[in-house]
Design a protein around this nucleic acid. Structure first.
Length: 510
RNA sequence: GAGAAGCUAGCUCAGUCGGUAGAGCAACUCCCUUUUAAGGAGUGGGUCCCGGGUUCGAUUCCCGGGCUUCUCACCA
């Protein structure tokens, strides 16, 4: 291509020109297959040593590998290239002395972002760089939409991409270009696997329950609505699998879990995505103490197996996941932080929201939009206590009024056997001894409905069939839910949930 | 939903007190067969997010819109 020709056309058009040039020579720029690809990381270890201490022999057997071209250094009739696959990067050396005429033509028409397959002997250059002397070089996929060029030296990255439009909307570019993004989602996958392994090893069974439900219950949140045409009914995307999983305990399974998406029709933030992944775990003949142990075991196991230590970095903090974690009482923690003692209202049938607001105002809290006493108390907790729970903390014994699915503490009818683990100032989960008294459950649902009547924004919907299930009989059961996205944020040391969800919800752009 | 900030070349960013814009990398031409943020010489590349308004003239000022980020609200 002449300079004049290149002047007025886009990068894509230039590459289309190279594509046509290849086709004109009978080279298929998108061949059907490439056989025998070796993993780049593996062949590096094999031929250069895990600590980069080996040097391949002169008569070493050639290797075959493939990957995306991420760097080209043109030396005239020879070039240094770098290719990258899922697990690694390696330098190639290729020139007209050893390549066939056709392969050399491909080399001369390579662009950053092309995917190539090569065969050649590993060797070290003068400067010691592990390299493959590519004696065969095939184009496997021609790049037409140029990738950002990222250069590195001494671990420092130059240029790179920071544009959110690319990072989140076109995640494939983020993954192709940013090693950190690839590492984050590989870690996410490893976390899911480790959690499943741990539960399977303890005899739990993974199940799948409906994501489209006629009644969205099991949590207090606004659901998405959808419609089934053949039945001509509206359905809700589930906000929690809880009530279905407990039906399975009724049915006789004793250890079940489900790890999958929930959907809540609420705002988007660095900590919220409308669809998010939860794991819910139920164990019959167990209680919330069992779930406390399990929670700590899960976090500790992940830390040790995936990061090699119970001490893990998060932002400016070092989080110690070693059990046992600190335990605090819900109301006691509020009293300590604010001096406000809400416990004395526990016995009251219907404590006044106005009274709670007055108390909250005395410590500078505005509770204007809230309608019930315990909503105001919860505000005090989330404002004054939650942000300070940096190290793992188990907050236990919540008021019954805000825990419609949890069992009361024997001898203390106003508090329930419930806890929430907090780490880095964020709620990581929710667990309790499951309420299995059907008549009591019915009363709790009715109380929720009454709260809704009196103006509470979000309450739990009544599910009559679930009450029927409890009437059949559910053994004493411990249940635990953990927000997987936030858990991954913790282990991946990410501040935004969008950094740990491959395709976070964004407004479509036209 | 509210407030603040951002949007300029493929990428990362300057800049224009209103006169249609620059750098580095990438691209293109040329030199170079052990380089590695390779190097050297040269060339091109922009609806300055979109639409109105003011103006002789708007990428710049004003109004409206779009998308994103941050904070707040709702929530996990």
């Amino acid at each position: 291509m002449s300079e004049a020709e290149s002047s007025a056309i886009s990068l894509t058009e230039q590459r289309l020109g190279k594509l046509d040039a290849m086709k004109a020579r009978g080279i298929d720029p998108y061949p059907v297959r490439f056989s025998g690809k070796e993993d780049i990381h593996t062949l590096r270890v094999t031929h250069f040593g895990a600590d980069n201490s080996l040097t391949p022999a002169e008569d070493v057997q050639p290797v075959t590998t493939a990957g995306r071209v991420v760097a080209i250094r043109d030396m005239g009739k020879a070039q240094f290239l770098q290719i990258q696959d899922q697990n690694g990067k390696i330098q190639l050396y290729a020139g007209n002395k050893t390549l066939s005429e056709e392969d050399y033509f491909v080399l001369r028409n390579l662009d950053l972002g092309d995917i190539i397959g090569i065969k050649g002997k590993p060797f070290r250059t003068k400067t010691g760089e592990p390299t493959i002397h590519a004696d065969e070089l095939k184009i496997l996929s021609k790049n037409l939409a140029p990738l950002p060029v990222v250069k590195e030296k001494d671990g420092e990255t130059y240029d790179g991409i920071s544009d959110i439009e690319l990072r989140y909307r076109q995640r494939y570019i983020d993954l192709a270009v940013n090693a950190d993004a690839r590492a984050t989602f590989a870690l996410r996958s490893a976390i899911l696997r480790e959690i499943r392994d741990l539960l399977h090893a303890r005899g739990f069974m993974e199940v799948e329950t409906p994501m489209m439900q006629a009644i969205a219950s099991g949590a207090a949140a606004r659901p998405f609505t959808t419609h089934h045409n053949a039945l001509d009914i509206d359905l809700y995307m589930r906000i929690a699998p809880e009530l279905y999983l407990k039906r399975l305990i009724v049915g006789g399974y004793e250890k079940v879990f489900e790890m999958n998406r929930n959907f809540r029709n609420e705002g988007i933030s660095t900590k919220h995505n409308p669809e998010f992944t939860m794991i819910e775990i139920y164990q019959a003949y167990a209680d919330y103490h069992t779930m406390m142990e399990l929670t700590q075991d899960i976090f500790e196991t992940l830390a040790v197996k995936l990061l090699g230590s119970t001490e893990i970095p998060y932002g400016e903090h070092t989080i110690s996941l070693k059990k046992p974690w600190k335990k605090v009482e819900y109301l006691e923690s509020i009293k300590e932080a604010t001096g406000l003692d809400f416990a004395k209202f526990l016995g009251e049938e219907n404590p006044s929201a106005a009274e709670a607001k007055k108390m909250a105002a005395s410590v500078g809290l505005k509770a204007d939009g809230l309608h019930t006493f315990w909503e105001v108390v919860d505000l005090a907790f989330s404002e004054k206590v939650e942000p300070n729970l940096i190290q793992p903390t188990i907050v236990m014994h919540y008021p019954k009024a805000i825990s419609p699915l949890a069992k009361s503490i024997p001898g203390n009818p106003h508090l329930v056997e419930r806890f929430e683990p907090y780490i880095t100032g964020r709620e990581m989960g929710n667990a309790f001894s499951e309420l299995n008294d059907p008549l009591e459950q019915e009363r709790r649902f009715n109380e929720q409905a009454a709260q809704k009547e009196s103006g509470a924004e979000e309450t739990m919907a009544t599910d009559d069939d679930f009450v029927t299930a409890l009437k059949v009989g559910m053994p004493p059961t411990g249940g635990l839910g953990i927000g997987i996205d936030r858990l991954v944020m913790l282990f991946a040391n990410k501040a935004s949930i969008k950094d740990v969800i491959l395709f976070p919800l964004l407004r479509p752009n036209k």
